[in-house]
């Protein structure tokens, strides 16, 4: 916002009005808004071919919620799978990277530089190129087509970013707090758990949300590593709707899409401030 200076001089005033800016931004955002609006309207109405105006109201497209389509898993099982998938990834990433980040930031471990560089390289590495190898490994150890397998893989792929971010946040915590903790008689683990971790709570919160959203929207890994009906997640379910050339149902596809995106929107609305932390505070090398 532009603050209006309180100096009483005819030369000094607010140097521009915010109204045109808002109008311009609104204008640019309009196409996006229209698209979202149409996405939703299309799921609860039928439209004549060639027309833009919906002609009648219907809940037909949302019927996937209460009746399981032939050849498709139950939507609620799929949703539960997605939820488990995203939550477990979040859990693994938070636990591992909050500890690993601390170690890399503060402890004098052997080969610390090597690990730091390794984390950086892994972060930059496109994980999709590994997918065939991972597929073979999972099949070998019997975790192919299981949620555990794909959770471990996805978490591992996301970990370098998490570790790096956590390290950046730990670096900002003053050393004196740790020194004070140790001379107060606390073990290094207690210092981490009771004194340092609480300092970076906002970052942990942000990383958690970030990981959950990444897990929620992940498609390639579950598609390749866990496509079975019992372990399907929403993104795979959604894709399967349009892969099927014979039963082409755009209405349902859109409805599932809306259903899929609603939790994300809710998370954003409630936690966007926390999420912004990840772009603001951390990642100092």
């Amino acid at each position: 916002m532009v603050e209006k200076p309180q100096i009483s001089s005819s030369m000094v005033s607010a140097n521009f009005s915010s109204l045109p800016v808002i109008l311009l931004l609104g204008l640019f955002s309009l196409p996006l808004l229209v698209m979202y609006a149409y996405l939703f309207i299309d799921t609860i109405s039928d439209t004549e071919v060639g027309s833009l105006i919906p002609s009648e109201f219907t809940l037909r497209h949302w019927s996937f919620l209460w009746e399981t389509k032939t050849g498709k898993p139950n939507i609620w099982l799929v949703t539960l799978n997605t939820f488990i998938f995203a939550s477990c990834i979040t859990g693994v990433i938070l636990i591992v990277s909050s500890m690993a980040g601390y170690v890399l930031s503060r402890l004098n471990v052997p080969a610390r530089g090597f690990f730091l560089a390794g984390v950086m390289v892994l972060h930059a590495f496109p994980s999709v190129t590994l997918i065939i190898a991972i597929f073979i490994v999972l099949q070998w150890i019997g975790l192919y087509n299981s949620l555990i397998g794909v959770i471990l893989v996805k978490a591992a792929v996301e970990l370098p970013l998490g570790i790096w971010l956590m390290k950046g946040f730990y670096d900002t915590v003053p050393w004196e707090i740790e020194m004070a903790g140790t001379v107060d008689g606390a073990s290094r683990f207690t210092v981490w758990r009771r004194l340092v971790l609480p300092q970076i709570k906002p970052a942990v919160m942000a990383l958690g949300l970030f990981s959950f959203l990444t897990g929620w929207s992940e498609f390639i890994m579950p598609q390749v590593l866990a496509p079975g009906a019992k372990v399907q997640v929403l993104s795979v379910y959604l894709a399967s709707l349009i892969i099927d050339d014979n039963n082409f149902d755009f209405g349902t596809f859109k409805a599932v899409g809306v259903f899929y995106v609603v939790p994300v929107l809710i998370l954003y609305v409630f936690f966007q401030k926390h999420l912004m932390n990840i772009y603001g505070g951390g990642s100092k090398g």
Partner: peptide
């Protein structure tokens, strides 16, 4: 001996209070 076992009290320049 590590500092935990030395029984010393330290006041730091920045005080190093635990903010939370």
């Amino acid at each position: 001996l590590p500092s935990q076992e030395r029984n010393v009290g330290v006041v730091f320049q920045s005080y190093a209070l635990y903010p939370h």
